[in-house]
Write a protein that binds this DNA or RNA. Structure first.
Lengths: 229, 229
DNA sequence: GCTTCAACTTGAACATGTTCAAATTAATAG
DNA sequence: CTATTAATTTGAACATGTTCAAGTTGAAGC
């Protein structure tokens, strides 16, 4: 409920071991049973710790999810590094990056629903628009900046400024769609990613048309005004 | 957690009184204290009922929120009826309708955050993409169909087909923005509504341009494929 | 080795959403 | 009016996230 106080816990070796055990148990159990079905008591038990000890390291169950996110983010980065190093075409880079998101998250599909709802809550420390999850969001936004920068596409400056954040939002939308996707192998999500990635790049090109200049300026102004707080 | 069984409770006069008292107490308390701070025990107490009785009429706390939604929807409909009867300009109709949403919801701004997160959860009966909240969503979509139909704008058939649902989604996005809006009188949300309403109608016009034909078809196909399940 | 103190651990206690079996009430049939 | 039955009401019991005061541990300084 309350935002986590940002004070770092100074980690001794003993503490670090406990913390790691608790986190690892939590990640396992979230995958096995889902977020809601995993109780803090079960986490503590599997970690060989006590209930209170878990709360010493993680202020709440939600904060364990935050680590869960960070974990998948690392996996995602590792998965796309070779592609980003090789590929120059923006559509391909975008498609590859977003495809990798859902592929990386696939083992957690069952958990994702309840997590997403937690994340959507503005008063949750996990809400990416503020609170504890903000740094992680910024890492993802930076990743999309890299996706753009490393491509051979020439994006006008005013668009380039807002694009990474917009693509992050796009990724969130894809993830929400993916949560509902019941098709075998989550194929429909992959199709939607392919289609939208192409469409986005196409619209970026069209944005230079004279008729669209006005709308383009307005849209960018809108995004800018929505983002600033 | 479980989806509500759709069996109607046959309401005798006695039952109806109790049900109404519980609902009314819940609506009051949600406004006074917010969703999370309102306990089922407090609702029962204020309603002069017992805890168990509340659960006899409402399968869960979330289902009380659903009624809360329905309540604000009625208020919204009443608020915009005169405007819709008079106004023919699509931009004005759209702006007026969405403005009325946030104005109607203003008394519940403090509650809205936690409610929104509950609603976003795919496994919640309140999730508008399925479950108990679907009928209400369809009412709102129908309202936007009316917003379009009653206007003097001539919308191409393929767009008109998908537009109401898209506008419902747009309304959801505005509401999410509104939740975070801390400006006095929620002025920023109103500004964003004005700007986006104009922009949407402008883009609808532009969609007829030959250069945009391809993208238009693709976007519509995308929406269609995303909506169908 | 002893003291000190912060880090760490513990489990009981609490609040609250939910379930349920039993009790109560009121309407209906005879 | 009485018996029956379904609707309604009740509150105890349960599960689980969270808090907290008290206990334990181990390293650093002497």
């Amino acid at each position: 409920m309350a935002i986590a106080s940002p004070q770092e816990i100074k980690r001794t070796r003993r503490g670090e071991t406990s913390r790691a055990a608790i986190l690892s148990a939590a990640l396992d159990l979230f995958q096995e049973r889902g977020y809601e079905a995993t109780t803090m008591r079960a986490i503590a038990e599997r970690a060989g710790a006590s209930l209170g000890s878990s709360y010493h390291y993680f202020p709440s169950k939600e904060h364990l999810v935050l680590e869960f996110y960070r974990h998948t983010h690392e996996l995602h980065l590792a998965a796309i590094a070779p592609m980003l190093a090789r590929e120059k075409d923006l559509t391909s880079r975008l498609r590859g990056t977003v495809r990798a998101v859902v592929v990386t998250c696939e083992p957690f599909h069952a958990v994702a629903g309840s997590i997403f709802s937690t994340v959507a809550n503005p008063s949750s420390p996990l809400n990416p628009f503020g609170g504890a999850a903000k740094p992680l969001r910024e890492e993802v936004v930076a990743l999309y900046a890299e996706v753009i920068k490393g491509s051979d596409a020439r994006i006008p400056g005013d668009i380039a400024e807002m694009l990474p954040l917009t693509l992050w939002l796009y990724q969130m939308a894809i993830l929400y769609f993916w949560i509902f996707d019941k098709s075998p192998g989550r194929l429909r999500t992959l199709e939607v990613i392919d289609e939208t990635a192409e469409l986005i790049v196409r619209l970026l090109t069209l944005a230079n048309l004279p008729v669209l200049r006005g709308s383009r300026k307005r849209i960018l102004g809108l995004i800018r005004s929505v983002v600033e707080h």
